[in-house]
Design a protein around this nucleic acid. Structure first.
Length: 630
DNA sequence: TAGAAAAGCAATAGTGCCGT
DNA sequence: ACGGCACTATTGCTTTTCTA
């Protein structure tokens, strides 16, 4: 089954819950139900929460008669263009213009923009791209791209009004504009906020953001006649009560984030209704509607984003729909609890599950902890067979297995472990506890043991086999404990490394200590938000103290020449220059860092002077650093 | 007026490219 | 083939506003 093609992967709007990376899972589920081998001629596929439409595009490529729906208007337009319209369109359309290439060329080279057509450029872009007012102007696009959007949008409207283009042609052109509008935005994806300055403080993604907006001919695909809807999934399921589908794919939102407000600007561009917004962010010194989210976004407020209604509506929808197979993609920390979802689905048929093969950690970690949940999966419901307790047990086991394999990749915090009742037992060698040890704990009559090397669980397979012999309640406790003892902060990780460095120093194992040191700048680089600032300074002090106490190691490695030390210096320098709002709270720490650092330089420079007279950039940098300290 | 919802903000894991 | 880096995409967390 081929799933990589420009038709499927290109021209997708940047999106929350983008299913591009879930495609392998969807492919796997479709293979698992073996629907494509059936003798039936017209296989139908319903995608009720289409979003970018990537799954519908896959289904269309696989030969299904696809029914696609999304409540958001921009998504409807995108899907109409890519699902309803076939590839032949590219040959037949825009004959009055001499073909699709010509029409795109005209739109890309519009030079005039009437005053009354200015909207995005006026309200959502700075007046000048070079000197934007960071406080009072919106910066969703460069002014250049804002004007492009306005001009193209107005021209499409004009053509449609004068019947120069058909409705289908209008949809097609709008979809190309929407794709560009989603790509060139000065945001991290959603339109609830824009970066302060283009590309934000780091100047990230500037190529994408500053690139001149330009439409291009997309890849389309031929397929069966498909239909696209623009409705609330629950009401549509009500209307589809009497229909039969071969496959129904459901991908409801699973967290609080609402698509209507997240992508308000795409709707505004698609609708071209120019809702009234305030020109500036501040009015009479008061901040008003910073992102100028259209007030009527609330019309598409999804019930799946709320605890009260998510489960009820999910159940309703499932009851309404008739299909041989349901594929449901959801998250383990979604609003509907996993167990309750299983319960609803098992009434519909036999359950199976497909999980992501690889561990994926979520982004946006602010609390210096490494979250381990977020397992991606698709539940398959085969309605031609009856559901039973065994399937559910199987699914639970699959999930547990996934949880264990997540945990295996993480570091164990021995301090937390001991605090919740784990004990150590020597194994391989009495002399060298750091090489391998056995961590064990009793759960009622069950004694669970993990063999550990370098603070990681080693005996993966053995653990798996043993765990799945446990009664479910105990298994759950074991998993919780495992997640608990591996849930360590970056701060913890650094302190564990420092502790080990000290130990290696005692035992004169300098190479191993040096290996551990290499990782420290990396860990420290994670402390870069305001909340972690003070923790960061304290940790730096601990690191520097550790380096002083173990100076023989670093002398032997010529630490001033080492790039990892350079990295460390860079981070320290950055931290010291950082403008913390309450300077008095941190000045003590800064001074301590300064004196420790001076001390370190003294120690190491003596040694290097004897050897070399000239030094590298590292030394220069150290010098700059020391000047700032004093 | 407190708690919930919405808006606002930006950190950071992942990806993929590029040069060595 | 691999480390470093630029870019992408997503969600966690904070602040503000709404509402019962």
């Amino acid at each position: 089954m081929k799933i990589n093609s420009d038709f499927i992967e290109k021209n997708l709007i940047a999106y929350i819950g983008n299913k591009r990376r879930l495609l392998p899972l969807i492919k796997k589920s479709i293979e698992k139900i073996e629907i494509l081998n059936s003798k039936k001629e017209n296989l139908s596929f319903l995608d009720l929460f289409a979003g970018t439409g990537v799954v519908s595009r896959l289904a269309k490529t696989l030969g299904f008669e696809v029914f696609t729906n999304d409540w958001e208007y921009y998504s409807y337009i995108m899907n109409k263009a890519f699902i309803e319209i076939n590839k032949d369109f590219l040959e037949k359309s825009f004959s009055t213009f001499g073909g699709v290439k010509n029409v795109i060329n005209i739109l890309n080279n519009l030079n005039e923009l009437k005053e009354e057509d200015k909207y995005i450029s006026l309200y959502y872009c700075p007046k000048s791209d070079e000197t934007p007012d960071l406080d009072n102007e919106r910066m969703f696009y460069t002014n250049y791209n804002g004007r492009k959007i306005d001009a193209i949008r107005a021209k499409i409207e004009e053509w449609k009004k004068n019947s120069i283009i058909t409705e289908e042609e209008e949809t097609f052109l709008l979809a190309l504009l929407l794709y560009e509008a989603s790509t060139r935005s000065n945001t991290s994806g959603v339109f609830k906020a824009f970066h302060r300055g283009f590309g934000g403080s780091n100047g990230d993604a500037l190529t994408r953001i500053l690139k001149k907006l330009e439409l291009s001919v997309p890849e389309l695909a031929n397929g069966k006649k498909c239909s696209v809807f623009n409705d609330d999934a629950v009401s549509l399921s009500e209307r589809m009560k009497n229909m039969e589908f071969d496959v129904v794919y459901l991908d409801p939102p699973y967290n609080q984030h609402q698509y209507g407000s997240n992508y308000h600007l795409l709707n505004t561009i698609a609708l071209n209704d120019k809702p009234e917004v305030n020109k500036n962010i501040y009015l009479d010194g008061k901040k008003i509607n910073k992102s100028a989210i259209r007030k009527d976004w609330i019309k598409t407020k999804s019930s799946f984003c709320y605890k009260d209604s998510a489960k009820k509506d999910f159940e309703k929808m499932i009851k309404n729909l008739n299909a041989n197979y349901f594929l449901i993609s959801y998250s383990i920390d979604g609003i509907i609890p996993f167990e309750e979802m299983l319960e609803i689905l098992s009434q519909k048929g036999k359950l199976d599950i497909v999980l992501s093969e690889y561990v994926k950690f979520r982004g946006g970690k602010q609390a210096l902890t490494t979250e381990i949940r977020n397992i991606e999966f698709i539940i398959i419901v085969d309605t031609t067979q009856k559901g039973n307790e065994l399937d559910i047990t199987h699914i639970r086991n699959m999930l547990s297995l996934n949880r264990v394999s997540l945990v295996m990749k993480k570091t164990i915090n021995p301090i937390i472990a001991e605090s919740i009742g784990f004990q150590y037992r020597n194994k391989v060698s009495e002399k060298d506890l750091s090489i391998e040890k056995v961590l064990c704990k009793n759960y009622e009559t069950h004694n669970i043991e993990y063999s550990i090397t370098k603070n990681k669980i080693k005996n993966g397979l053995e653990v798996f086999n043993k765990l799945f012999e446990l009664p479910p309640m105990i298994l759950e406790n074991v998993l919780l404990d495992l997640e608990n003892i591996t849930n360590l902060t970056k701060e913890d990780e650094i302190h564990l490394s420092l502790k080990d460095i000290a130990k290696f120093y005692e035992e004169a194992r300098y190479d191993e200590a040096y290996e551990l040191f290499k990782n420290i700048p990396y860990l420290l680089s994670k402390f870069n938000n305001r909340k972690a600032y003070i923790t960061g300074l304290k940790t730096i002090i601990d690191i520097l103290k550790n380096l002083c106490n173990t100076q023989e190691i670093w002398k032997s490695f010529n630490i001033l020449d080492c790039k990892y030390f350079g990295k460390l210096e860079k981070i320290i320098l950055f931290k010291l220059n950082y403008n913390y709002p309450k300077e008095e709270e941190v000045s003590g720490y800064k001074k301590e860092i300064a004196s420790l650092y001076e001390h370190l330089l003294d120690i190491f420079e003596n040694k290097t002077k004897e050897e070399k007279t000239t030094k590298s950039a590292t030394k220069k940098e150290s010098k700059v650093l020391s000047e700032i300290f004093i």
